[in-house]
């Protein structure tokens, strides 16, 4: 063991929770993560404040998170699937009687910070994006634009169910078809999917993946009854007085940088409204097969945190899926060609 990072925090939690806390151990009831441009944040939701240790073994490529003294219980059936370049993954590790969560760091990982938040009790681990090993910026125009396709719903969230199938499966199939068409096109693009199988992902996780991938554009795919295709872009938020107003009560910020980023989270799309409109127009016209078709505006939860041109498409389940995929790919390709 090279470094014991969490000893200070362990003591703080220990003191504030009473002398028996270490014997009770630490029970983790939830694990979440957020990918930001400068760091990845992992949040361990504790049942009760208790001492913990966060260690970084000699190779420096993993972090071990466990209780300090008492038993370490993880009441989560599945750890979230992180792979954002900074953190490569998380898994439960059992070494004899010692249990821990093993956090595997990615090639872009730098320093690590950890701290405790109370009420509800959380242990927050921030893995900063390291500047020394970050990929060097390429010359402008050298990098293929990243197209993020987001097949809607997934896991327990099925979406609408029609005679043609379940929305989550139909949209995954549609996304894979669009990806194939885009790869065959003459325009150089890197296509990334927010999910490649039937798995649940929150809107924030999908947006975070797009943002950390350096998305050039983001297309969320959804289904609706009927044979028409509709395109939506995010509407201006008339009812919200400030960027931080109405945020969910999971404020995690602690230091100034994180706090600022947390406040801005969910407002990223505001800076891309014109480009989203342009992308939406291209796709709406390709889907409708006629000029003059415009995207509709809606307060979409999927798009507000995406830091790129972003649209949500509703493909009618009675539409030919291949034709829908071709039209969407055509609209994307046209937008990319116009912008490069």
């Amino acid at each position: 063991m090279r470094t014991i990072i969490g000893s200070l925090c362990a003591c703080l939690v220990f003191i504030s929770s009473g002398a028996n806390a270490a014997e009770k151990g630490l029970a983790i009831k939830g694990v979440r993560y957020f990918s930001y441009s400068g760091f990845t944040r992992i949040v361990f939701e504790a049942e009760e404040a208790a001492p913990y240790v966060l260690t970084k073994p000699g190779d420096g490529r993993t972090l071990h998170f466990s209780s300090y003294g008492g038993p370490f219980t993880v009441k989560v059936t599945q750890l979230p699937p992180i792979n954002d370049g900074v953190v490569k993954g998380m898994e439960l590790s059992q070494d004899g009687e010692h249990r821990s969560i093993l956090i595997t760091l990615g090639p872009a990982a730098g320093d690590t910070k950890d701290f405790v938040l109370r009420g509800p009790d959380r242990i927050v681990v921030d893995v900063l994006r390291g500047t020394a090993i970050a990929p060097s910026p390429e010359a402008p125009g050298a990098k293929a634009p990243v197209i993020v396709l987001d097949p809607g719903h997934g896991g327990a969230e099925t979406g609408i169910v029609t005679g043609q199938g379940v929305e989550k499966a139909l949209m995954l199939e549609l996304a894979l078809t669009i990806k194939r068409i885009l790869r065959k096109s003459g325009t150089r693009m890197t296509v990334v999917l927010t999910r490649e199988q039937d798995q649940a992902a929150t809107h924030d996780e999908r947006a975070a993946l797009a943002n950390t991938s350096g998305a050039f554009l983001f297309v969320s795919l959804h289904a609706a009854q009927g044979s028409a295709g509709r395109v939506f872009i995010l509407d201006p938020d008339e009812g919200q007085s400030s960027p931080s107003a109405g945020r969910p009560s999971d404020f995690l910020g602690f230091d100034a940088v994180s706090e600022q980023q947390q406040m801005l989270w969910g407002t990223q799309q505001a800076g891309h409204s014109q480009e989203s409109g342009r992308l939406g127009r291209n796709i709406a016209r390709a889907l409708a097969g006629r000029e003059g078709t415009e995207p509709a505006q809606a307060p979409l939860a999927q798009l507000k945190a995406v830091d790129a041109a972003a649209v949500l498409i509703e493909a009618g389940t009675a539409m030919s899926r291949v034709k829908a995929a071709e039209a969407i790919a055509q609209g994307i390709e046209q937008y990319v060609r116009e912008k490069r």
Partner: peptide, 24 residues
């Protein structure tokens, strides 16, 4: 107007429309 589901602030009703904000 603000909308809650089961007494709580929820992200959406059916997976699309943002309910964390107030509406006019």
């Amino acid at each position: 107007v603000r909308l809650l589901m089961d007494g709580r602030v929820t992200q959406t009703l059916a997976g699309h429309i943002d309910l964390s904000r107030a509406y006019v």
